[in-house]
């Protein structure tokens, strides 16, 4: 089986770069033949994650274009609140937190441990029925 295409880049967490990241995520989703809605979901997932990650420093983003969708990794992230929010087995009922948002807009997500107590958030988004 061929290796999936990969794209990685690093972007400032500063809010002004949010639209740039969105544009790139959109371009990657387009190359993976995502429909508008699936692309919008992935853009929203990445955007919310970056907002929660604060505004200082840079963040790495990597994308694997797999046969059925895109695996995204965001991090290492320092923000411990993200790990805590995402490691709860279930989100708090009735709240609209990061866990609730991610579980709605991506097919699955997970938290991977990185060095120095940092985390990497993995997002899996399937192409759906766009093709």
């Amino acid at each position: 089986m061929p290796e999936p295409d990969q794209i990685s880049f690093e972007a400032p967490l500063e809010a002004a770069f949010g639209p740039v990241v969105r544009l790139i995520v959109g371009g990657i989703a387009e190359r993976a033949d995502f429909g508008f809605e699936a692309m919008d979901d992935l853009q929203l997932a990445v955007e919310r994650l970056l907002v929660e990650a604060g505004s200082d420093g840079n963040v790495k983003l990597s994308f694997e274009l797999r046969g059925d969708g895109i695996r995204t990794r965001v991090g290492p992230l320092r923000e411990r609140g993200i790990a805590e929010a995402l490691q709860d087995s279930e989100g708090k009922p009735g709240t609209l937190d990061l866990q609730r948002i991610l579980s709605t807009v991506v097919d699955s997500y997970g938290v991977e441990q990185a060095a120095d107590g940092h985390i990497v958030v993995r997002l899996e988004k399937l192409r759906g029925v766009a093709l």
Partner: peptide, 11 residues
């Protein structure tokens, strides 16, 4: 969306 019965791709 209405014509295709699904979300259209960017293409």
């Amino acid at each position: 969306t209405s014509t295709l019965g699904r979300s259209p791709s960017i293409g």
